[in-house]
Write a protein that binds this DNA or RNA. Structure first.
Lengths: 208, 208
DNA sequence: GTCGGACTCGAACGGTGTTTGAAACCCGTC
DNA sequence: GACGGGTTTCAAACACCGTTCGAGTCCGAC
């Protein structure tokens, strides 16, 4: 990758972590941090939007790698048995929850990325990233072992639900705190993860 | 309300339903539809942002009224017994799910409103609306009757989870379809609502 | 009749992302 | 070593944005 382009991605990542709103990310500021000019963004990436996507893609890779490593850890720990349902669910949501609560993490990049995706007039740019689900698919065989009475589609649906709950936690923290009368410490990742596991696990049990 | 201000809210609501991205909403377009000038937006509402908030507030009122009426219907149908758990959950999520799938509804206004809230540099403007949870609180006593072993906070947490799953459905339809191998018809509100009820209900049951 | 407030609107302002065209640079070829 | 062509850089210009400003209009109160 061209060194200027690389510097732009770095600057974009850095700025996305510093700003409170995506509106504060401007081509001139990014270029300034990177020590170049706004037009170089268009030249190397086609548009500011695509630069943000490039930055987010890099961060997503790290997050997915962490999730995969958690999964592998749980699998190896339990080997030769299948991993515990709770560990599986925890691995699925752990990195997102933990990163979103860690100000030193690059989670802000993903948050702003999602904000941009929602308001974009060219959603096709974001689709490949947002709907890339291979990192989720790797969980499915393990869930199936634990709940063989559920079809793959049923497993997928429940994983979607788990991810939706995860998003609710990372996005609407204040609302959750009010709704739960501040009895849950939503700034404590371990507690949040345990709470999510607690409500998601029954979805995969035979009860119904 | 000043007639020009009213026309601006109407125009804003209309335009929000027609556009694909919030970026296509410009002060000049809104003013054009309303038959006035951009500066009147600043004059009557203070900013374009606040105009969108005013428009969204009106739509939220209608949605919350519909939700409340569904709740009351379920309560009366079951009276003097408490309403069925499934009906309660369904009432909680029904309007959002149904509106989000009905192109004639004003759901687009709320979708764009949420997109704006996420990217705004003045989130305090949105907080009162997004975190207004009185419409959710009215559900709590009924849930408590059905699950008296859960504290109010536990009920609130599970309601939050249900709303998170709801958001996942209204926001990331395509991803859900892929994860479920297209076995769920996410364009059919009745099916979607039934699916959500199916996974949420166990959260409120005694199992664990 | 005149004052004062509410309202409207066109022009201007400072900002945005992107395009443009001319330099500067790099590097293989003669 | 000099040339030539592609690649990269950058300042200026462009079209557009939301907002502000100031003059002008309207209308009811005194």
């Amino acid at each position: 990758m061209n060194p200027t382009a690389a510097k732009l991605v770095d600057a974009c990542e850095q700025l996305l972590c510093e700003i409170g709103s995506i509106e504060e990310l401007t081509a001139r500021r990014v270029a300034g941090i990177a020590g170049t000019t706004p037009s170089s963004i268009s030249y190397h990436f086609g548009s500011q939007e695509k630069l943000v996507i490039a930055a987010a893609q890099r961060v997503y890779k790290r997050l997915n790698a962490e999730r995969l490593s958690l999964l592998n850890g749980a699998v190896q720990r339990a080997s030769p048995c299948p991993p515990a349902l709770e560990d599986l669910i925890a691995a699925l949501i752990d990195p997102s929850v933990r990163w979103s609560l860690d100000p030193r993490s690059k989670y802000a990049v993903l948050a702003h990325f999602n904000a941009m995706a929602q308001r974009s007039s060219t959603p096709e740019l974001y689709r490949p990233i947002i709907e890339g689900i291979d990192h989720h698919r790797v969980f499915m065989p393990y869930f199936r072992m634990l709940a063989p009475w559920l079809s793959e589609a049923e497993i997928g649906w429940r994983m979607s639900c788990a991810l939706g709950i995860r998003s609710q936690v990372t996005r609407s923290r204040q609302r959750n705190e009010v709704l739960t009368y501040h009895t849950i410490d939503f700034s404590n990742p371990d507690e949040v993860i345990a709470r999510i596991v607690e409500v998601v696990a029954p979805m995969f049990r035979g009860a119904s």
